[in-house]
Nucleic acid binder design. Structure first.
Length: 488
DNA sequence: TCTCATT
């Protein structure tokens, strides 16, 4: 069986790797010399049982033509595609590779997976069947509360009696130090479940703060949520592109968070609306995609993400992430995404189904909604920045009963303008008022918003009550009628 | 304490 993960197979790998092209139907791929025009047989054929491989840890400066030679050594390539971001075209650092022959894929995996590190990468190349190739049942475990000294082998030993382990990885920081957790992938769900039953909480590793954690690893959805939550924080700190790019930038940051942060990092100004955009994405994803997901950032504790305006100007810059030092705005390369039209900071996208099931899609839609409601003037961030938004607070006006909202747990830096922005998507806001401490001029973190009709107010409550911004969650409810407080 | 990315 072709799975190989760590070093012990070294010795055998090269022997296997050199097996000559051979045996089963792989002649297929070789005999497609020129046929008469129009004959479909000119297309390279692959085995019906060919395996699509996922190739990871590819330097971003290598494209298909650079990679081919590396992989052709193991057989004829049917298809090799570097993954790119659909809008930015940015190389994602990974690829899909299908050989004509199944055997070639196995050989390549044996010879390459985790066996060498491409230039500029700090982790070894990954060559393994793509996710799409496996029946995606849950069989991967997250193991937490390990001792930081424990190695892959230690973890294997701990887990091997419950089934056959396909993969075992200790999570490590950039310095190579264990983060005290690991992934263990079994060949079946049942094995994984057995390991959970037997091991979760069963013991406490020396030096660990609590007992061993063994649970199914996050699904992709959960990971997306997790990232967006992290991003909500980061966008609060680094800011402006979220505005400059509008929905596009927000999307790109989900996809290319680190890279974009590098280009965004210079700003250092906190825009409450950037935080809001991020938070809205997170919210949409949460309410639509994964009701059971924890809402609070899992980093927890004393360092709330984002929403910390007074400190942000000290962010060091320029910032480089993975050697990436900047990225032009999408408009700048002469190739704006075909799907997006930029007009005064408002971004129009093709209609998308509001019922899309993908949480990211949902989040994206949410941001579009936000972006669409966002005044063009404020989108001109270069002028607005770094000053507060040029929203002129209007005279305090109450709407009819049922139209006035009380909002609590506002971010400290939200003013009347941000409050209004936040509720514009739900209707005609006739007034917005954040209460301010007279002595300090600081927001008291609550305020009122009035709409001109009760439907808008209800829609706003529906969407915004419980809405998470940073560590806080908004409380949005109907304002009590003036006389409601009176005993009689 | 949830990787490094999965068309």
């Amino acid at each position: 069986m072709a799975t190989l993960t760590n070093g012990q197979v070294d010795g055998t790998v090269h022997g296997v790797g050199v097996v000559s092209a051979s045996t089963n139907g792989l002649v297929n791929g070789l005999n497609h010399s020129h046929s008469p025009a129009g004959c479909p047989a000119t297309i390279p054929m692959k085995d019906h049982d060919a395996i699509k491989l996922f190739i990871g840890q590819i330097p971003r400066n290598l494209d298909e033509k650079d990679l081919r030679p590396l992989f052709e050594e193991f057989g004829k390539i049917y298809e090799l595609t570097v993954l790119k971001d659909r809008f930015t075209g940015m190389h994602k650092g990974c690829a899909f590779l299908t050989y004509c022959a199944r055997e070639s894929a196995l050989k390549a995996q044996n010879a390459l997976h985790e066996q060498k590190t491409l230039p500029g990468m700090n982790r070894p190349i990954q060559v393994k069947p793509a996710d799409s190739e496996s029946r995606g049942e849950d069989r991967k475990l997250f193991v937490g509360m390990l001792n930081k000294q424990q190695s892959e082998d230690d973890v294997r030993r701990l887990f091997e009696s419950f089934g056959s382990i396909e993969e075992c990885t200790i999570l490590r920081g950039p310095d190579g130090n264990s983060k005290g957790c690991a992934f263990v992938k079994y060949s079946s769900h049942a094995e994984a479940q057995a390991a959970i039953s037997a091991l979760h909480g069963s013991q406490t590793m020396p030096g660990a703060s609590s007992s061993l954690v063994v649970k199914f690893a996050d699904t992709d959805k959960e990971r997306t949520i997790r990232r967006m939550q992290q991003m909500a924080g980061q966008m609060g700190i680094f800011n402006p592109m979220a505005l400059q790019f509008g929905a596009y930038g927000a999307y790109a940051q989900v996809q290319q968070q680190a890279a974009l942060m590098a280009s965004v990092g210079q700003g250092g100004y906190l825009s409450p609306m950037a935080a809001f955009a991020a938070a809205q994405m997170q919210h949409m994803a949460t309410i639509n995609g994964l009701p059971g997901a924890p809402l609070t950032p899992t980093s927890g504790g004393s360092t709330p993400p984002g929403i910390s305006a007074p400190t942000v100007t000290s962010i060091p810059s320029p910032i480089s992430v993975n050697g990436f030092t900047g990225m032009p705005p999408p408009q700048a390369n002469g190739q704006p995404p075909a799907e997006a039209v930029f007009t005064n900071g408002i971004h129009h996208y093709p209609a998308q189904s509001p019922t899309a099931a993908d949480p990211l899609q949902q989040a994206y839609t949410g941001v579009q909604q936000y972006a669409a409601a966002y005044p063009a003037a404020y989108g001109q961030i270069s002028q607005a920045f770094p000053h507060p938004p040029p929203i002129i607070p209007q005279q305090q006006r109450e709407g009819p009963e049922g139209c006035n909202l009380f909002i609590y747990h506002l971010p400290q830096e939200f003013g009347d303008g941000e409050l209004m922005q936040m509720f514009l998507p739900f209707g005609n806001v006739i007034s917005s008022k954040v209460f301010v401490d007279r002595a300090t001029n600081q927001s008291k973190c609550f305020g009122f918003v009035s709409f001109d009709n009760p439907g808008s107010a209800q829609a706003a409550i529906q969407s915004m009550n419980g809405f998470q911004i940073g560590m806080k969650r908004l409380k949005v409810q109907l304002k009590r009628p003036k006389d409601a407080n009176r005993p009689y």
